[in-house]
């Protein structure tokens, strides 16, 4: 058996094939980026084991993740932000984790996306399950998993075809995802429109919307199509009482130990705003939650400067607008003395 010859051919051809694959994806406009996965989240969660007086925690869904620009937050408040918001999730499982499994009593900002927070507390609902899976992953993470993530970072930073995401919207160039985009005859119902990636995140989970979402309307419209598909489905009526009670219970516990709780309603527009206004009217959901919880609250509709911001796909702010939003929001919060843990106050 002439395995030496085979091995040389395999090594040479293998490297050529991988290089060609990388060049192909770069030619398609893909750039290396970090994936917002469970390890990135768990690394942030680990910071709560040794938090300090300056620690500020953010929970919620992707809106607070995109709309709060952490570099501005750090510069303006001199605090250590820990971003625990998770895309497409209800804040309840992570809020419960912080209240039950840590003794953190600093400032906690809870991003409220009405369809995600007020729909249900049912553990099997996807937006509850995904958030809970992050909490569970952190709890059970092995040393090998930590090491794997550390080793994957240089690859993620340098190779465009490397994806290490948990959700379908993170991983659009791995073999499984590429195969799932092959559509033959429709069999189970209309095909799900392709969900193009629009995240750019740092290791500290500072999320920015890529500029392409602002400059390439067709690209941002493809994301709108996905939202329209999702929002066009049938949904059971929201469990208003159960979700508000669950949030209030956690809020009371957190405040009772001295925590500074702030609810934040980030902007939405277009179809999202329409559905949220109709399905989750402010006076029946947000106002009742704030009244019962006793937390501080900021709703974008209450501030003139937040009325005409740019949300390229109706749900998240473009980077420039997110920077404006964060800056202005901090001015308002500081004026109110809302950030009790901020050194600048």
């Amino acid at each position: 058996m002439k395995l030496k010859q085979s091995l040389i051919i395999a090594a040479t051809l293998g490297v050529i094939l991988v290089a060609a694959w990388e060049l192909y994806w770069r030619s398609q406009g893909r750039q290396p980026n970090i994936d917002d996965n469970k390890n990135l989240w768990a690394n942030q969660r680990a910071k709560l084991e040794h938090y300090n007086d300056n620690t500020v925690v953010f929970i919620g869904s992707s809106r607070i993740l995109y709309d709060i620009q952490l570099d501005i937050w750090i510069d303006e408040t001199n605090t250590d932000p820990v971003m625990l918001a998770a895309q497409g999730t209800s804040p309840l499982p992570i809020f419960r984790d912080i209240v039950d499994n840590t003794d953190f009593n600093g400032t906690l900002l809870v991003g409220v996306t009405p369809p995600l927070l007020f729909s249900t507390t049912y553990p099997e609902a996807n937006f509850i399950k995904v958030a809970q899976s992050l909490v569970d992953y952190y709890d059970k993470r092995t040393y090998a998993q930590k090491l794997n993530h550390k080793l994957s970072i240089p690859l993620q930073k340098n190779l465009a075809f490397i994806r290490d995401g948990d959700q379908s919207w993170d991983t659009d160039v791995d073999l499984k995802m590429l195969l799932s985009q092959i559509h033959l005859k429709e069999r189970t119902g209309p095909f799900y429109p392709p969900f193009n990636n629009f995240e750019s995140i740092t290791l500290d989970r500072h999320m920015k919307m890529p500029q392409k979402m602002v400059t390439d309307t067709a690209y941002s419209n493809s994301v709108k199509k996905v939202w329209a598909y999702i929002l066009g489905g049938d949904f059971p009526p929201p469990e208003r009482e159960a979700t508000i009670n669950a949030t209030v219970e956690l809020a009371k516990k957190f405040q009772a130990r001295g925590g500074n709780l702030i609810f934040l309603r980030c902007p939405s527009s277009g179809l999202f705003r329409k559905i949220e206004s109709l399905g989750f009217p402010r006076n029946q959901f947000w106002d009742i939650l704030i009244e019962n919880s006793g937390g501080k609250a900021y709703h974008y509709e209450d501030y003139e400067q937040f009325h005409n911001l740019n949300l390229p796909e109706w749900s998240h702010l473009a980077e420039k607008d997110a920077r404006f939003f964060t800056t202005e929001l901090l001015k308002i919060m500081k004026a109110d003395g809302a950030l009790t843990n901020s050194k600048s106050d």
Partner: peptide
């Protein structure tokens, strides 16, 4: 054998 080996390696890498 070398070509088959390389293809398997490539598919492992892109399967990620």
């Amino acid at each position: 054998l070398g070509v088959v080996w390389a293809i398997m390696f490539f598919l492992i890498v892109i399967a990620q």
